[in-house]
Design a protein around this nucleic acid. Structure first.
Lengths: 337, 337
DNA sequence: CTGTTAGCGCCTTCAC
DNA sequence: GTGAAGGCGCTAACAG
């Protein structure tokens, strides 16, 4: 690699490596003139400290990892953006991993991170994740850990979510007030915490308004977009069709539009849909999509701020076992057409 | 940190650290029984090698960095996804940085990476980037470097782009064939290589079909979404309005739709637009947006494959100074309405 | 086949 | 105010 290192700087300056190191770290024991000389030389030779030597010595990496289930998703992209903004501000580095909704991959990724590679982990668990011993290992090793969105309740650490129950409730009420009487719920996976919360809100809203609901109004979708489109198309144009839909995640709302398009039919005229979604252009669709968008960027930056505080200040306590609910933004604007 | 390390394993096994190390690395010098013992113990104690010690020793990090101008962009997200898929396959790690279109940030990020933190860099330059000494430094230090999308021509390394000139041409021809006679070009920045190429295609298509074009048909947009929307709204409903628009980047197409929406007007009825865009749902808009989408995921994975090949095989030559054009996918489907 | 030693680059305790 | 020495955890040369 033939990099310029402290030893080399020391030779050039006719000083010892330890003096150079101290000067660069602005130690009080070094005279100002020496500091100036060292810093000037370091700049001239474009000296950059070797991060691995430093990490090895200091037992910390100034790096955090974020693990998400899938990348092509506006929500996760925005969360990462929020995290990155803060880590950059603090001079931290950000490793990104995607599990592709696969627990085995998740286990592997987590194991890579267990020997000090990162100072903290931020993650949203894969929808398949049931056995959580790998997450318990992380926690027990004392690696600061924050969950968001798809959280793992069992691990007693801080979790960031949005007020999913409340929003599921409000979304359903909105549809009811628009006159819907037969509201279907598009669900991605029973395992996902957010899906369950939103679903509870949906159920309770129906109960409160005295509306019935039937088992088959809960549409179990899969990870396959194609299959979802087929499934939803059958439902949209079937005999027992809904007059309203609550899509529990963005991809299912999109699938619904595609279902309408690919079957060469228009969306049913009297039809209303609300979706949890971070699509910036949902309002541009026709009929426009009412969205409940999670404060993704803010969730990312708040998590990162919390982490940075913990990592950069001495003697911070472990994260509390609490759930922080960030309020979602509900866009109930009417479609202009 | 109190981690289990090789020394500790060695004590437990009553072996020397070097034997343990060799056993774990499956060295031919170690007997099978010893290997088995060591591996079993390592597994039992959940041993994970310290990545920094290894990187320090080996002078390589098994990490690559990707630097992009902005995250909230479908194209870049998809590229990162493509890269990540391959790096994960090879057991590499991926650091992600965003410059927010700021050259100073770009310089800072690059400088962090210069002392071995990463084995290679994949980047798309910020739109402001004119002085390129920081990029030359990277190149001269011998860090494998690949540019994509917004490339830096001056550095003699491998670059990945899509066939922008050709697509600018085809898009314009498409509009002409649809009967447009007054086609405006929405441009983001004169500094961006892809913008220039697409613009050349546009110009040549107009020339070839003997259509005039005027200076003020080239709409210079900015990084500010608000301002872009205002600017485009003025143009869309002005006296000298276009009958067709070629948007050189996705965000400008979206701005156009917003401009139409916010002015509470419909898009002009006879109006056609083509945009370079990786929005999956462009076809769901009304009027649906004709898109030229870059093979983002493939660009990411191809770049990563090239890098992995170079990094994992011995004695690979430096990257050739060549531009690899990945064909875009043009969706000229007619809007179903 | 296994053990001893040295060094990757950095920081820090201890000496002067 | 500065220098010398040791060690973070790992691997590879050198011994045996």
């Amino acid at each position: 690699m033939a990099e310029v290192n402290i030893k080399y700087l020391a030779e050039k300056l006719k000083l010892s490596p330890s003096t150079v190191s101290r000067a660069l770290n602005d130690s009080y024991e070094i005279s100002q003139p020496t500091k100036d000389r060292v810093i000037a030389m370091a700049k001239e030779l474009n000296y950059q400290p070797n991060p691995f030597a430093r990490s090895l010595r200091e037992q910390k990496s100034k790096t955090i990892a974020v693990i998400i289930p899938e990348r092509i998703n506006n929500f996760f992209s925005q969360v990462i953006d929020g995290i990155e903004e803060i880590t950059q501000e603090y001079g931290y580095h950000l490793l990104v991993y995607s599990t592709h909704e696969n627990v085995e991959t998740e286990r592997k990724i987590v194991s890579y991170l267990l020997n000090g590679r990162v100072d903290a982990i931020v993650m949203s668990v894969s929808s398949q994740t049931k056995k959580i011993d790998h997450l318990e290992t992380v926690y027990s090793k004392g690696v600061p850990l924050i969950f968001f969105d798809r959280i793992c309740q069992e691990i007693p650490t801080t979790k960031f979510i949005s007020n999913d129950y409340e929003n599921g409730f409000k979304a359903t009420v909105h549809l009811i007030e628009k006159g819907c009487k037969k509201i279907f719920f598009l669900m991605l996976s029973k395992e996902i915490s957010i899906g369950r919360e939103r679903f509870r809100g949906y159920q309770d809203a129906l109960k409160k308004y005295g509306l019935p609901y039937e088992e088959n109004w809960i549409v179990q979708c899969s990870q396959s977009e194609e299959e979802n489109i087929k499934l939803i198309a059958r439902i949209l144009y079937g005999l027992d069709r809904p007059d309203g839909i609550l899509a529990s995640v963005e991809k299912l709302a999109i699938a619904t539009y595609h279902a309408a398009r690919e079957t060469r039919l228009e969306m049913p005229k009297d039809f209303k849909m609300v979706s949890f979604s971070n699509m910036k252009i949902a309002g541009l669709l026709k009929p426009s999509l009412t969205t409940i968008s999670q404060p993704a960027f803010e969730i990312g930056s708040e998590m990162a701020k919390l982490l940075m505080k913990k990592l950069t200040k001495p003697n911070q306590p472990a994260f509390e076992n609490k759930v922080i609910q960030m309020p979602s933004q509900i866009d109930f604007r009417e479609s202009s057409n």
